[in-house]
């Protein structure tokens, strides 16, 4: 399957990066990824494949976790961002909904939105706030509650709302569905889709729930043990037998219940791919 070339004016371009934690063997090897303005791209792969590392390489959190880009570049809108501090990158129009949500337990929902708005011009604050509460009306009655007391789903909405307040051009969504009931997850993705349509925001979605991701995105990459294994349009990948077998699974409507045995089987079967 041929890789689809994105035009040179990509919003985000990751070029052949090699990333390692401390002195360990590289966690990412020769990884390249492109994302255009307004596109939704998914990043699939098993646990430990390197998805979170790739996200950290983009959002500037490698240093905090004692990792660095050994070679290659990451560019946002033509400007190089690998090695740049996370808060600078956030102010360039990149927002992240991190894995595990990373909310501030003692701050209120309103304060989360306030913090999210730090990267955005003041004129947009009110409008963004209304939009967020429109997308997630469940937050309205809880607006002055401390986030630590909210349910998992509500906390995920807060984390997303916080990211949206920055009026980002690119959003990184890391395992949004984790720990949430399917019905809530579906609702959240619907609202994300609505947001995308209204604002043209590009999204990079990391998901273990491959079916959900492939339904949502335009293109996807499959990451395996630090390398890009597959890439293509959502339709192409959905039709790919390997993806069907390993990620889309047999259980209808469920997210992938990817077990260690599955991983071993996968590794044995894909040895020929290298």
């Amino acid at each position: 399957m041929a890789a689809i070339d994105a035009p040179a004016t990509a919003l985000l371009s990751v070029s052949n990066i090699e990333v390692a934690y401390g002195r360990s063997a590289p966690a990412l090897r020769g990884v390249s990824l492109r994302l255009r303005e307004g596109e939704v791209v998914s990043l699939l792969g098993a646990n430990g494949a390197g998805k979170t590392t790739l996200i950290r390489s983009i959002s500037g959190l490698l240093k905090l976790h004692s990792a660095k880009v050994l070679s290659g570049q990451v560019n946002l809108d033509g400007a190089r961002i690998d090695g740049v501090a996370a808060h600078h990158i956030a102010r360039k129009g990149l927002s992240q909904v991190p894995e595990g949500r990373m909310i501030f337990a003692n701050l209120t929902v309103a304060e989360h939105l306030q913090i999210g708005a730090l990267s955005a011009p003041v004129e947009k604050h009110e409008m963004s706030r209304r939009l967020v509460l429109d997308l997630f009306p469940a937050l309205r009655p809880r607006i002055d509650d401390q986030a630590g007391w909210l349910s998992g789903g509500e906390q995920q909405m807060v984390a997303i709302g916080r990211a949206l307040m920055a009026s980002p051009r690119l959003m990184l969504l890391d395992e949004v569905s984790l720990g949430l009931a399917p019905i809530i997850t579906r609702s959240i993705f619907e609202q994300l889709d609505r947001y995308r349509r209204e604002t043209g925001c590009a999204m990079l979605v990391v998901e273990q729930n491959a079916k959900l991701a492939l339904d949502f995105c335009d293109r996807a990459y499959v990451l395996d043990r630090g390398r890009i294994l597959l890439e293509g349009s959502a339709a192409d990948l959905k039709a790919d037998p390997r993806v069907q077998d390993l990620y889309l699974g047999e259980a209808p409507g469920e997210g992938s219940a990817y077990t260690f045995r599955d991983a071993k089987r996968y590794r044995r079967r894909t040895r020929w791919l290298k």
Binding site: S59, G60, L61, L64, A85, A86, H87, A90, R91, S95, Q96, P98, M102, I103, F104, A105, N106, L107, E111, Q114, I115, G116, L118, S119, R162, A166
Partner: peptide, 24 residues
Amino acid sequence: TSLGLQMRATAEHPEAAALSGINS
């Protein structure tokens, strides 16, 4: 104040604060 809020956020979760654009 905004700076006060930033300090509270940074104190509670430095990583999340950095992601939100707070200059720790």
